[in-house]
Write a protein that binds this DNA or RNA. Sequence first.
DNA 1: ATTCTTACA
DNA 2: TGTAAGCA
Length: 124
Amino acid sequence: MRIGELAERTGTSRRLLRYYEEQGLLVPDRSANGYREYDDTLVDQVVRIRGLLAAGVPTKIIRQILPCLTEREIVQFSGTTEPILTALERERDQMSERIEFLTRNRDAITGYITAVKSQSRTGY
DNA sequence: ATTCTTACA
DNA sequence: TGTAAGCA
């Protein structure tokens, strides 16, 4: 499929798809006319890349584990080298920290909301 | 009609 | 990232 279809099927702008390619996150084929040609399996690939990006994983890491998340949702252990594994563990820990950070702030906001509501009940 | 690259806001 | 220009 060409970029337009992939954009629709992944909910990603064409601009961003080209940018991902520029960052080495996507490697589409090129047809004779110069148009990018994307394999069907890349639909899931893009969705997963976006998920990692949304989770705060840097493109550098994503690029490293790219061969691991190629095709299916099953990981390809063959391409998982020692340094990549180390990078992933560090990434996981940072993710945990972000989760805790978000949890604290969510609770703080909940507390604020509760306070505001109880005040509005009491009057202005 | 659709995509491509380059470049600017 | 969006958008515009000028091609193919």
